[in-house]
Amino acid sequence: MKTNYFFKIAALLLVVSTLSCSSRSSNIGVEGLTIEVSDNVIYDQSTVEFKVVNGGGDDVTDNATIFVDGVDIEGDSYLFTGIGARTITAETTLDQADPVIVEVIEPSYTTKMLIEDYTGAWCAWCPVVTKGIIDAHAVPVKGDHVIAVAIHNGDSMEFSLESQMRSQFDVTEFPTATLNRTPTFWIKNNVTLNMDIPQALAFLDPVQPVGLAINSSVNGDNVTADVKVGFDLNQEDLKLVVFLLENGHVEEQLDNTSYFGGPGLVPDFVHNEILRKSFTDVFGDVIPEQEQRAGNVYEVSLSVNEPGVNTTDWDIVAFVVDQAGEVVNVQKAKVGTDQDFD
């Protein structure tokens, strides 16, 4: 009797064990099926890539069907058209993933571009670039989105870190103007003495996912700039640069052109957009990674001391640069004013 009892118990344990193992085997890689997207927030006409992962962390994309708004798609990517929230899910023969939302948005920010003019009052051909900046500003609509900074060498307006900037951007002669801090310099026609305006304005064509706002105040010789950086889409490795500029400074200028009263020495030349101080490192202060998320606004308050600063002749220029040091977007505001995102 006792032997028979043990046989029954052993048989029962074998059945339970078999059923238990069978149940676990059927659930391996099934429970917790998820779908991953390359971006959760995108612009219209953008492609998103998908990856389906099982509960064990295995990539099962090839064995899954992916749905966008309930319609199955071919492959593991999809070109989104139209603004709004889109629902993404996926299923295998054994499980279905919880839905993921991809938000398709319109750009929030106007693209602006930066010209940095390496110049000097002693440089007789530098007024060619000055005239080019004036011409660029004069272009309807687009001209309002061109922002210039004059970085002086060898005169009373010289910027203290000018030589480091020249070295960083491989500026070896005067005049030289950089466009959005890219390796491509602004082209000058040596025959007509005109700058290539379409070349500069072409930098306004890309849609940029980052925008800036500036609010500043003056207290004696102290200038405070409250700068905001807004993000439409997730970004990484961005830095912020903020400059203080002076306008309307009258000082003689050598001029080999006839644009400003030359050729010869022009005693009452009006110098504008002169870089006087930098609120940040001239190559950028790091924006914290956690701040560079879609829909977020990064805020920072910065101050400098500059004798003679006022709300009539001075501007603040703020711009964001990427990992390569190239400008993503730029904003400008007169000191003492509030320039919102645009």
Score class of each variant (00 low, 15 high):
Gln339Asn: 12
Gln96Val: 15
Ile197Asp: 03
Asn27Phe: 14
Leu245Glu: 02
Gly154Tyr: 06
Asp58Ser: 13
Asp39Asn: 10
Val227Met: 01
Phe279Ser: 04
Glu299Pro: 06
Leu13Glu: 05
Gly32Arg: 04
Asp72His: 03
Val270Asp: 14
Ile133Val: 07
Lys334Glu: 10
Asn215Thr: 07
Ile115Ala: 12
Val53Trp: 00
Pro267His: 12
Thr87Asn: 06
Asp232Glu: 05
Val139Tyr: 09
Lys334Ile: 09
His137Cys: 07
Leu161Phe: 14
Val30His: 08
Gln339Asp: 10
Val328Ala: 06
Thr47Gly: 09
Gln208Arg: 07
Gln323Thr: 12
Arg181Ser: 09
Asp205Leu: 03
Asn190Thr: 15
Glu306Asp: 15
Ala225Asn: 05
Leu79Phe: 13
Val171Gly: 11
Leu201Ala: 01
Ser303Val: 07
Asp72Arg: 02
Asn40Tyr: 13
Ile83His: 08
Ile197Tyr: 03
Pro307Gly: 06
Gly336Trp: 01
Ile101Lys: 10
Leu114Cys: 08
Leu12Glu: 08
Val297Trp: 08
His152Tyr: 12
Val52Pro: 00
Asn40Gln: 08
Ser22His: 12
Gln45Val: 13
Gln339Met: 09
Asn4Met: 15
Gln292Leu: 01
Thr176Ser: 13
Gly325Glu: 07
Thr3Pro: 14
Val100Leu: 00
Val37Asn: 06
Asp62Gly: 11
Leu79Thr: 12
Gly264Leu: 08
Gly70Gln: 09
Cys126Gln: 04
Glu158Gly: 15
Thr87Trp: 10
Tyr78Thr: 09
Val149Asp: 02
Gly120Val: 06
Phe269Trp: 06
His152Lys: 11
Val304Ile: 12
Met157Arg: 13
Phe67Thr: 04
Gly75Ile: 02
Leu265Cys: 06
Glu158Ile: 10
Ile35Val: 15
Leu240Gln: 08
Ile101Leu: 11
Leu238Gly: 11
Gly308Phe: 04
Pro267Tyr: 14
Glu91Arg: 13
Arg276Thr: 08
Gly154Lys: 13
Asn27Leu: 15
Thr65Phe: 06
Phe7Val: 14
Ala213Lys: 03
Glu74Tyr: 07
Ile187Arg: 14
Ile287Lys: 02
Phe185Pro: 13
Asp76Gly: 05
Asp170Tyr: 13
Asn219Pro: 03
Thr312Tyr: 05
Asn222Thr: 11
Asn215Trp: 01
Ile274Leu: 15
Met113Val: 15
Val327Thr: 08
Glu49Val: 04
Phe231Trp: 01
Asp155Lys: 06
Gly154Asn: 13
Thr81Gly: 09
Ser160Pro: 04
Asp232Ala: 10
Ser160Met: 01
Pro206His: 07
Ala85Cys: 10
Phe67Trp: 03
Thr61Asn: 00
Ser23Tyr: 14
Ile151Glu: 11
Pro209Ala: 15
Thr178Leu: 15
Phe269Glu: 14
